[in-house]
Nucleic acid binder design. Structure first.
Lengths: 239, 239
DNA sequence: CGTCAGGTTGATTAGGATCAACACAGGTGG
DNA sequence: CCACCTGTGTTGATCCTAATCAACCTGACG
């Protein structure tokens, strides 16, 4: 799981250099970022940020997976976002977190002191634009997820989730259209349930049912093979 | 409903001047915006934008209400956003719409040619920053809505919706804490159902039940009085 | 070997969807 | 002016999907 080849001061060679908030920065801008960045690691299960807390930093996910979680008083939980490598955590311009962020695997972050970062956003158009682009992308993703949460059946939710994971996971390798390769689920059944607006039991049952139907092959707790992505896509209810 | 006192070339006196994307613009920037803006009206029920279409413009809602809708092949529909006065439509940097936008009441838009607007975003930091701020706000709202869609009961959804409408509606007047005032729902039962991930019948039943419980008073199809906002808040399941 | 977290499977329940009938207001045209 | 129609909303009966409650399985680890 340790893709982070011991993160260093130097941004060149960073695995997310060309996808994260810094992707469109030139050499000078990167220098400024390098000056204010620092790495931080969190173990699986650890909170990265608590709703209501003061936010001292913003960050990019370098490796691992985190979730954005919303809680209700009675304990109901909804995951409102998956944070994979290159995704951005925090909000410039706000100093109190409005949701919880939790590491679901071991996570390494590239953090920036918030005040310094905000300054940069203010006078580095490249960064401001990239921030805008990224938040608009997230907004699109959030809206697609609303359709899933509001209208899709349990089976459609699982199928959609699996294909999304496959895409975001393989796209790291850029372009490889791999049908039969095993993907490693970054989430437990419980975390998937929270993300999909379901219960653990329903997630488990749907996995079993789709396995029986030959749509997926399960390999231990985390491994899934999708023998025929097109068939699985047929189960998503398609937008 | 005609709050738009016949929109003019001149942005001063515009009802959304201090809340929309242009809110932080100085005189010079406003002049540039005035040069590329034009007004357009849509009747209730009319489409403003179709998913897949070329987007020629971006716009601010000046008056009326529109919805962002996602459709599935079999006709299931989810509303992913309510667009009220001062909200922004469209995405700079993308030229094909990814969702449908529909006027649910008569709507007046302040439109900007997309290419010209993108240019402005590129060299007007105030606008770029406001865009970022607005999309981050929308992202927060979208995430809250995910919690509603994924985890709340029908009654909680309706209560949350009513309070949200009350807030967004009255905040126009700024600060007035009006408990007993009637609010005009901008949506039909069907549109509410699509927004809340419910069916028309469930929405209707919940309205009836909450009326019987004394939580709301109904006044025709669109009028609702909330005698005790705190009591209604008790029904939202609170975050 | 026992414990415990994570996962599966079964039985039952319940909340909301679906199917269906009816109510009501607002036009429209005779 | 009234009869009719249509779009919107309400209410009732029934069904079904996913939640809940509960038991059990599996593998990792002390």
């Amino acid at each position: 799981m340790d893709l982070s080849a011991s993160p260093s001061r130097d941004c060149s060679g960073c695995p997310i250099r060309h996808r994260a908030v810094c992707s469109s920065c030139d050499a000078h801008e990167i220098t400024r970022l390098e000056a204010i960045k620092y790495y931080r690691s969190f173990e699986a299960g650890q909170p990265i940020m608590f709703s209501g807390d003061h936010m001292a930093f913003v960050a990019s996910v370098v490796s691992g997976t985190a979730t954005i979680e919303l809680l209700m008083e009675d304990g109901r939980k909804q995951t409102a976002g998956l944070l994979l490598p290159s995704d951005f955590i925090g909000r410039p311009g706000r100093d109190t977190a409005v949701y919880d962020v939790t590491a679901v695997t071991d996570v390494t972050l590239c953090c920036f002191r918030r005040d310094a970062f905000e300054e940069l956003v203010g006078d580095t158009p490249h960064i401001a634009q990239r921030m805008l682009e990224m938040s608009l992308d997230e907004l699109d993703a959030a809206r697609d997820w609303m359709l899933l949460l509001g209208r899709k059946t349990a089976r459609e939710k699982i199928a959609t989730f699996l294909l999304m994971i496959q895409k975001r996971t393989q796209s790291t390798v850029e372009g490889a259209q791999d049908d039969g390769k095993e993907i490693a689920l970054p989430l437990t059944r419980e975390a998937m349930a929270d993300y999909l607006g379901l219960t653990i039991e329903t997630v488990s049952r749907q996995f079993s049912a789709m396995k029986k139907a030959g749509l997926i092959v399960l390999n231990g707790r985390r491994g899934v093979v999708i023998p025929d992505a097109a068939a699985l896509r047929g189960e998503t209810g398609t937008t």
